[in-house]
């Protein structure tokens, strides 16, 4: 397959605190193993965003979020909004997830404006929510994986945030929390999905131990680009699933 997919890593220098760049690597390698060509673009502060087939936006420190917010509002927001409406897949983690929402209200009551692509709001909470997370994927995504005799619909990750995110009624959570805090530690939801955008608090890097999620995004990137349906070739994911299952085990969820 000679298809080239263009991946844009948003704010890789400014928002890169928790090892999230691994998601870019996992997306790239898994696509390349299927014969795709991957071109990686980056768009940081004061750099333009080019139209792409997949966007990744990771987490960063609070201090950086207001810089990114200022940079993002305007033409960049317009472009990303149009891309989102055109079903372009995006993976947003932690700070990136919060910034494509409506706003982030800081501890001193300032509002950092987001791109408003996701109907979510984030409010700084009094305590940091840190630890392993396990969620059951929202069935609307239709993602599941048969591993041996077990149907897997879980996602595993590690959260580290103090912002509490609340979803509007018309936006769906990525999944239901089985372990951890998730969006806000109150309503048992974790992350969000809208069209082909996935937002989550899961670090890890998230896609590494969740190959079903990685492949879902690769598939969407191809299908939206070409307008054709595709079944991705199976890979030997035994190590990925061993890592995934060992986290379920650790949380006594096997």
């Amino acid at each position: 397959m000679d298809q080239e997919l263009i991946l844009t890593h948003l704010y890789p220098k400014t928002m890169n605190t928790y090892g999230d760049q691994g998601n870019v690597l996992v997306f790239k390698k898994r696509a390349e193993w299927r014969g795709f060509k991957i071109k990686i673009l980056t768009a940081d502060l004061d750099e333009p965003i080019k139209k792409s087939d997949f966007y990744f936006f990771g987490g960063g420190q609070d201090q950086e979020q207001s810089l990114v917010s200022k940079d993002l509002i305007g033409l960049k927001t317009e472009l990303l909004k149009a891309e989102a409406e055109n079903f372009k897949p995006m993976l947003l983690i932690c700070g990136g997830y919060q910034l494509l929402g409506e706003y982030y209200q800081t501890a001193d009551n300032k509002k950092i404006v987001g791109a408003g692509i996701l109907a979510i709001r984030t409010i700084a909470g009094p305590k940091r929510m840190i630890g392993d997370i396990v969620l059951n994927l929202n069935p609307v995504l239709g993602i599941s994986e048969q591993i041996n005799d077990k149907k897997i619909t879980t996602v595993v990750g590690f959260e580290n945030h103090s912002g509490k995110t609340y979803l509007d009624k018309n936006i769906k959570p990525l999944g239901q929390i089985v372990k951890g805090y998730g969006n806000n530690g109150e309503d048992k939801t974790e992350g969000a999905c809208y069209k082909n955008i996935i937002g989550s608090y899961g670090h890890g890097s998230l896609l590494a131990k969740n190959p079903h999620l990685a492949d879902y995004l690769i598939k969407k990137a191809f299908e939206v680009k070409t307008g054709e349906k595709i079944e991705l070739e199976n890979l030997d994911d035994s190590l990925e699933w061993q890592a995934h299952l060992s986290r379920l085990n650790y949380s006594n969820l096997k």
Binding site: N16, G19, Q21, I130, F158
Partner: peptide
């Protein structure tokens, strides 16, 4: 460090 995400950096 209970979070091993750092290895990806």
């Amino acid at each position: 460090g209970v979070d091993v995400s750092w290895i990806w950096d």
